[in-house]
Design a protein around this nucleic acid. Structure first.
Length: 553
RNA sequence: GCGCCUGUAGCUCAGUUGGAUAGAGCAACGGACUUCUAAUCCGUAGGUCAGAGGUUCGAAUCCUCUCAGGCGCGCCA
């Protein structure tokens, strides 16, 4: 519907432009929005206000001119009026809304999909936790946001790949091996000094026990380095499988697990540094190799290879991102914890230095999650090895509540996750509120089926839908495709959660005031179609969030 | 010291990219089940949009400064 209004407006503006009555600046895009108040109509535009100055006209006069032309050239509206300083308010004819129901009925699960992304290849990399321990709640938020965003981008027509970057080389993996070996020795009654920054969680002991079961006591006779390597490889593989399992149970599936070790196997890091040198992007100083990141907006230059010859973390990361570019992704989205924000400017600098255009690389920063149980904060500290894992949260509150709650805040805002609230089956819990709306509609559809009523029949009686309650629902449905596109283009997945809550609210209101199945056969049929379309859109939203849409509760 | 993020109702948060009288949910209070699920709905109350300037037809939104909280500022990963 918004598209239609926009089309009419643009047509009229072009006509007026051709008459020489206005000046339209470059990149002009009139705002078309949904007014807060019903008295201001269904849609409003500020076009006249924006064009008044460049056209050197009085905004209200200009608005009057535009609105008259619109009324002449379109019969979509009952009224087009000028209000306030020069807004143009559109009042859509009541029977114009019902067309949206035909669309939903036809497209079903595809309703809301669009060609906005035009098949552009997008990669979204998220979670990417080191395989040194199980995922914690913070990773869960990243997983929920990343996966939902991926689904939104798919719906918007992008060709999306989900990727997990596995940091499986380097010091932290050796530390993992050392930690496990130390527990293994303890298990066999040997005295062992646990490494100072070792991983202290209970899962380390469990892994040591498994290694004992498989390898017996043979590690005691191995040279230290070999024993560490056995422990490291076993534990790493084991933990990664655990991570994959936790994510699957969270409804998150990756298309690609990219191992850091690949970067070294093909010397991609070395080749990347050579390329950067050839392009004149680097310089040597104090025996170290630097990247001139200041030339691309970073606040200081960054070391790639230290004076002792070892690479910094940054070097392989550039090689990795260069590889993403070479794989043909036009949009590359990284989801990181907010504590990495200082890393963003240098990574975007590297991307642009390697030829990516400005709109290619996006780092989405996810703020912290604090867990609360009945108002009391739940302690979590990675240092002590006592932290709440994603699995614990999912086991306690369920996948649906967890995924929905993670989606209820903007990424860059702190999230207070109340475990008690997430478990409640009551009105305070938004997940159940939405699922309940879906289940209620399913119940109506089932009842209608008992008397052989099908929602498709309603297509013949769309004209019966004329009350405010009915039109409000159709307006909400009509907003859905725009919501998906805006969530995709602005990378703001939380908008889907807010939208579906709104839709459920409008439905519950309708439900309490109106009977769907009643005396009037035609009205019943039309309303049945209406609520079934609502159900479809709720289901589409929930699917996008990885949340189940139950038929009964 | 420098940089990034945040500051909106008692609490948790939205606010369609600068639009009209700033909105939800929870908590509080008062109502609605002979009904397709009351796990719901309706109503009341609640605000110096942290503060001060500025930009303009118009600011919670943009620019500057101040205050408060969080997080980063390594030849660590």
């Amino acid at each position: 519907m918004k598209d239609k209004v926009e089309a009419v407006l643009n047509e009229v503006l072009n006509k007026i432009l051709a008459d020489g009555n206005i000046t339209i600046p470059e990149n002009f895009k009139p705002g078309i929005n949904l007014p807060a108040e019903k008295q201001f109509g269904d849609y409003a535009t500020n076009a006249a206000l924006m064009l008044a100055k460049p056209s050197k006209k009085n905004p209200r006069e200009l608005a009057t001119l535009i609105s008259e032309k619109i009324q002449d050239s379109s019969d979509l509206f009952t009224k087009v009026e000028v209000a306030g300083p020069g807004f143009i308010n559109f009042f859509v004819k009541a029977d114009a809304w019902a067309g949206i129901l035909e669309e939903v009925n036809k497209e079903k699960g595809h309703f809301g999909r669009s060609g906005f992304g035009a098949g552009k290849k997008v990669q979204i990399e998220f979670v990417s936790a080191n395989p040194t321990g199980p995922l914690h709640v913070g990773h869960g938020r990243g997983a929920a946001v990343g996966d939902t965003l991926a689904r939104i981008l798919e719906a918007a027509g992008f060709d999306v790949q989900r990727e997990y970057y596995v940091n499986d080389t380097g010091n932290q993996m050796n530390m993992l091996g050392l930690s496990v070996l130390s527990r293994y020795r303890e298990l066999l009654g040997q005295t062992s000094v646990f490494p100072e920054n070792g991983y202290k969680g209970d899962y380390i002991k469990g892994t040591a026990e498994e290694i004992h079961r498989i390898y017996g006591e043979s590690l005691l006779d191995m040279p230290e380095a070999e024993a560490v390597s056995v422990c490291r490889d076993y534990a790493g593989k084991n933990i990664l499988e655990g991570i994959d399992n936790d994510l699957r149970e969270f409804n998150v599936n990756f298309d690609m697990w990219f191992s850091e070790s690949v970067l070294y196997k093909d010397d991609m890091v070395g080749k990347t540094l050579e390329t950067m040198k050839d392009k004149g992007l680097t310089f040597e100083d104090d025996g170290a190799l630097w990247f001139k990141s200041t030339a691309y907006g970073d606040e200081k230059d960054r070391v790639l290879r230290k004076s002792d010859g070892a690479l910094t973390y940054f070097a392989p990361d550039i090689a990795y991102h260069k590889n993403k570019l070479e794989r043909g992704f036009k949009k590359i989205i990284d989801i990181w914890g907010a504590d990495h924000h200082g890393y963003v400017p240098r990574m975007s600098a590297a991307m642009r230095a390697l030829g990516a255009d400005n709109d290619c690389f996006h780092a989405l920063l996810i703020q912290l999650v604090s867990l609360v149980r009945a108002g009391e904060p739940v302690q979590m500290s990675t240092r002590s090895g006592e932290f709440i894992t994603l699995k614990e949260v999912v086991d306690e509150v369920g996948k649906d509540a967890a995924r929905f709650f993670f989606m209820m805040r903007r990424c860059d805002s702190h999230l207070v996750f109340d475990l008690e609230l997430a478990k409640k089956r009551g009105e305070e819990n938004p997940v159940f509120y939405v699922q309940y709306a879906h289940a209620r509609i399913c119940s109506i559809v089932k009842k209608a089926a008992l008397s052989d009523q099908k929602s498709e029949t309603g297509l013949k009686y769309l004209k019966k839908l004329l009350t405010d309650d009915e039109i409000d629902l159709m307006k909400m449905i009509a907003q859905y495709p725009d919501t998906v596109v805006s969530a995709a283009s602005d990378l703001e997945p939380h908008r889907i959660a807010y939208y579906v809550l709104d839709l459920a609210t409008v439905f519950h209101r309708f439900y309490n005031k109106n009977k769907v199945i009643g005396e009037d056969y035609e009205l019943s049929a039309a309303r049945l179609l209406l609520v079934d379309c609502v159900r479809q859109v709720i289901a589409n939203c929930l699917l996008m969030m990885g949340v189940d849409a139950p038929e009964s509760m």
